[in-house]
Design a protein around this nucleic acid. Structure first.
Lengths: 181, 181
DNA sequence: CCTGGTAGGTTCGTTCACTGAACCTTGACT
DNA sequence: AGTCAAGGTTCAGTGAACGAACCTACCAGG
């Protein structure tokens, strides 16, 4: 958000958090990372953000320790962006935002639902499993598509996200798909 | 965020929520509303946002039904901005952000803690009361200042927020205080 | 009647960030 | 040598945020 001076003297944890993840696109990048997106180009086609902005956001998320940039291939050199422990702790924020967007805003069909991978039960609003009575970490959550999703999206990342998927599992696009940008 | 086209075709509840509350200052306005701030000038001195931006944010929050603008005095005409039911449902978002800002970001002293007003117990991360085993609505939460707060802030709103306060209770500033802007 | 003060804004010029398009680099493949 | 893909950077144009000044309505004191 490039705020610095104004938010800095707010003496407030909420303001501090917003300094880090409050800029445009930032939380959507983190959301995609939970959905398994790891590569620059996949973020790009899924978000539709300008390349320069995406590069800046990825860099700043790495700088604050939310994402880790790591080499996954040497020739040609390719990096991927993976959520750190600190980034994974942002899940309750995304969860709360998504819940509010779905329930408090009018005329929204449910886009995705989140289930405990061990038992299939849909998670309670607080993020725990009603059946097991346990707090469910993001790695044990399965995302399932809902009625509000576009059934035939244009970009390959959205198409891959139409299938039920466990959070944080890297998204692997079929080679034929990655060509359609 | 004036995004419209880009976020709009994201088919995602998180993106929809961010369209509404994702702009700079917006969530801090909502936070202040939870703390009892209701008047334009109080938001202004506490946030330090430009007047034009604050006016635009308040108006857009009224437009989307998060705040209600209502006349509380006729002569001279004075309006106050109060959280609606829809706005109050944003509490889990602020809670999650504040928790992350405090626990995941380094070097932060706790600024405020939140307690169940019925028993005084500090709330669990999910927002429930560990002693009573109940989900606690914002109206039953008491905010208490923590070690990270500036003990002698410049503006009267920050000074008023140094005392333990129940959420959503309107902030009444002593007349002598409101003069020091 | 004149001045001053307060609440709640609007207007305006400057600065800064976002946008979209084009371009660049590295390495693999043919 | 030419082409392709990934992952960027650069750049001009636009829109939003910023800070200061100004405006309006009302009341109080001298």
């Amino acid at each position: 958000m490039a705020l610095g001076k104004d938010y800095a003297n707010q003496h407030c944890s909420i303001a501090r958090a917003l300094e880090v993840v409050g800029e445009r696109w930032t939380l959507l990048v983190v959301r995609d990372a939970f959905y398994g997106v790891r590569r620059y180009n996949d973020f790009l086609v899924h978000l539709g953000a300008p390349r320069a902005v995406l590069a800046a956001r990825l860099q700043s998320l790495v700088d604050v320790g939310v994402l880790d940039k790591r080499r996954y291939q040497e020739a040609p050199p390719r990096d991927e962006y993976v959520l750190t422990e600190r980034g994974i702790r942002l899940w309750p924020v995304l969860r709360a935002l998504g819940l509010w967007g779905r329930e408090a805003l009018p005329g929204t069909l449910p886009m995705r639902s989140f289930h405990h991978v061990a038992c299939g039960t849909e998670l309670a609003p607080a993020g725990d499993c009603p059946a097991c009575g346990l707090a469910v970490p993001p790695a044990d959550i399965e995302m399932r598509p809902g009625a509000g999703l576009d059934p035939d999206p244009a970009d390959p990342v959205s198409r891959a996200l139409l299938k039920p998927r466990r959070l944080l599992v890297p998204l692997e696009l079929p080679p034929s798909e990655s060509r359609r940008v």
